[in-house]
């Protein structure tokens, strides 16, 4: 039975084409002695053979000869610029692609700059003062707030990353709900960043700052921008490994939570926060 379970993994590798020679020999030996595994392997071989025998659909040479003409007609109406057969309208296509390549990063850069400006402005905003509490409580409070913030942000980011763009129409991405949540988190980030900076948690502050930028982009998404705008944000999340950074921060938080609280005992008195 154990051997069958072991060889099931080999069958999986065989199906994927990654079974090495030694694994193949072991599978051969086992299949010779085990009727059930032999039958299963035979079944998989049959399915693959059936796929190879299955003919491909082909509408015929006339269809293929005119394929480009029909595509070109659609390109003219649906995807300017115009491309004519035999004429290389490089300038039109390049212009289109140039502006497209220029426009998307420019929009992203504008969002980032706006995020930084708003972030700076909101951290300078006066906060209502509250009575100071002990350093220990403030350190614990900051950690809880940070963890909650990271968890809530992660949920939004994961939802955005895991939605395959073409799986759904952009209107199916629940943009309004995510925009409201992102806006609320964006506002919270300003206070949190200030408190993290004062507590000298620079790594966390950088992470929250990155999140703030992404959340601002999500908050400013418009359905009419289409999935391209969502793709830019997804690329930003993946490019900066933001979700991995959140997981890492949460792991550090979990392992060092007691240390963080203890460090608050010796830390200088925390400044007044919004809480």
């Amino acid at each position: 039975m154990f051997e069958c379970r072991l060889q099931r993994k080999s069958l999986c590798q065989w199906m994927a084409g990654t079974l090495d020679a030694a694994g193949r020999e072991a599978l051969d030996r086992h299949a010779a002695a085990c009727p059930s595994c032999r039958e299963e392997w035979r079944g998989l071989q049959e399915v693959i053979m059936a796929t190879e025998r299955k003919p491909e659909p082909d509408p015929g040479p006339e269809y293929w000869d005119r394929y480009w003409d029909r595509l070109q007609a659609r390109l003219e109406t649906e995807a300017a610029p115009l491309i004519r057969p035999g004429t290389v309208r490089r300038s039109a296509l390049r212009r289109h692609l140039f502006w497209r390549r220029l426009a998307l990063p420019s929009a992203a850069a504008a969002l980032i700059v706006a995020g930084i400006m708003i972030g700076r402005w909101s951290t300078r905003a006066p906060h209502p003062s509250v009575p100071a509490v002990s350093g220990v409580l403030q350190a614990g409070d900051l950690e809880i707030r940070t963890n909650r913030y990271l968890d809530r942000s992660k949920r939004i980011l994961l939802a955005l990353v895991n939605d395959l763009p073409a799986d759904k129409d952009v209107y199916g991405l629940d943009l309004p709900g995510r925009k409201i949540a992102s806006r609320a988190l964006f506002r919270e980030a300003a206070d949190l960043r200030g408190d993290l900076a004062k507590a000298k948690k620079r790594r966390l502050e950088r992470l929250v700052s990155d999140l703030q930028t992404i959340l601002l982009q999500i908050a400013n998404l418009k359905a009419e921008d289409g999935l391209d705008a969502v793709d830019i944000i997804r690329a930003g999340i993946e490019g900066r490994d933001v979700i991995f950074q959140i997981n890492l921060a949460r792991m550090r938080g979990a392992s060092g939570s007691s240390a963080a609280v203890l460090s608050g005992l010796t830390a200088p008195p925390a400044p007044k926060s919004a809480f």
């Binding site: 999986c12 590798q13 199906m15 990654t18 079944g43 049959e46 399915v47 053979m49």
Partner: peptide, 25 residues
């Protein structure tokens, strides 16, 4: 995950084709 999808799809297709009464070879 791809390996897992391939294995599962192979087993399911085999079962479906057997139930459809198709002798493949």
């Amino acid at each position: 995950s791809v390996k897992s999808y391939l294995f599962r799809s192979g087993r399911k297709l085999r079962r479906e084709l057997s139930e459809a009464g198709l002798r493949l070879s």
